[in-house]
Design a protein around this nucleic acid. Sequence first.
DNA 1: GTCAACATTCCTGTATGCAAGAAAGGCAGA
DNA 2: TCTGCCTTTCTTGCATACAGGAATGTTGAC
Lengths: 226, 226
Amino acid sequence: MGRPYRHVMKSQRANTIAEALEDMILSGDFAEGERLDEIRLAERFSVSRTPVREAFQRLAQSGLIEQIPRRGVFVRRPGPVELVEMFEVMAEFEALAGRLAALRISDAALAVLEAANDNCRAALSEGNADLYYVENERFHHVIYEQSGSAFLQQEVGRLHRRLKPYRRMQLRLRGRMSQSMAEHEDIVAALTAGDAGRAADLLRGHVAIQGEKFHHLMASLRAAAE
Amino acid sequence: MGRPYRHVMKSQRANTIAEALEDMILSGDFAEGERLDEIRLAERFSVSRTPVREAFQRLAQSGLIEQIPRRGVFVRRPGPVELVEMFEVMAEFEALAGRLAALRISDAALAVLEAANDNCRAALSEGNADLYYVENERFHHVIYEQSGSAFLQQEVGRLHRRLKPYRRMQLRLRGRMSQSMAEHEDIVAALTAGDAGRAADLLRGHVAIQGEKFHHLMASLRAAAE
DNA sequence: GTCAACATTCCTGTATGCAAGAAAGGCAGA
DNA sequence: TCTGCCTTTCTTGCATACAGGAATGTTGAC
């Protein structure tokens, strides 16, 4: 399994606070553009303002919040254009990870991929979207890991997390789950065959937002905005 | 010109301190693994420890320093493996930027590219590596900008900065400047023709570390370590 | 002479105090 | 009644104080 690659061994509390805040923001606990009150959050986490401010620094860099000098920090949700841009980069990351993984993936990892796929298939037949989502995550993370590039794994992981809520939306598109499933199977086949180019193309297409997926994303965004 | 895309309007001082520290680290003012002394740096910048610590947070996230709890922060220089990984991702970014730019680039921007290339050519004939470096930067940044993706522009810009010192090393390879020059010309041709696939491939190859370039990078690293 | 335990010192992480800037509300004038 | 200015209050950004853990040096025993 890939080496840990954690150059950020953060201060204990700021770490957890940042993660908690990230979860809260990603799961929509705050409204778009809402100001995050240092003092209230500090009380909520039973710490002083300092660790909260440190957490803000982190979140600002990952783009989840916007810091305006002397005004405060505000939750920042990407608009449609930015979202498409992010998925575009994400697709490229996936393609690269797939290309590398096709050359390097271990048999054990292939087995994990197939197991995840089996679970996905089960989730699909039960109509269990949550399970599908979880197993889908596992599937992709295995590929990132098997790319053999710790740096890529880190970067793709960051973006993956950032897009989490939107990926989840995608799965709500009728028929998307079964289509995704089919794509997964092709991807595993390409990886097994060691066909780097094909794995890259399949993964790029799997993640990219095109055609139906685009319209669905837009519609979901509008719906979520209400 | 691209919209600014700055979700991080950072606290005035921490911002500049972080930039100053980044410059210092990238230009090698600190030794590999050296501990950064909060107090001394605070004195040096004539501020208290707080803004320095905020700057640390940022640098830690971009990977330039490593924070170890209760021990301090240390400058972290990527090893050979990680460097190659970073260049790999960088090449993919460039390819994507080129593919998008081929479809979207404006005539004005093409003119800027050609101007930069002219200057590169002049620098080459004078043997002026510094000028070449500067114009080369301009060349690439125009492409990032013309990708039309603010998000990509941001991400590629970050990695570009991080790899700055190493890119500079590459130019010291005998004959690399003229080869780079020739590649630039092909790239401009592909962009002018709107040939997205070719622009992507050329840029990927231009940035990727392969063959000679790999050995040269390793040799330079060893030399720099002494 | 070497090793181990202890004490001291230093440094990080967190809390809190303080000043300056921004927003909001009130008051006066048109 | 609406608008513009002033004042008040709130919040951020920075400085500093304080506590706990890590590292280092010293002393004593073997």
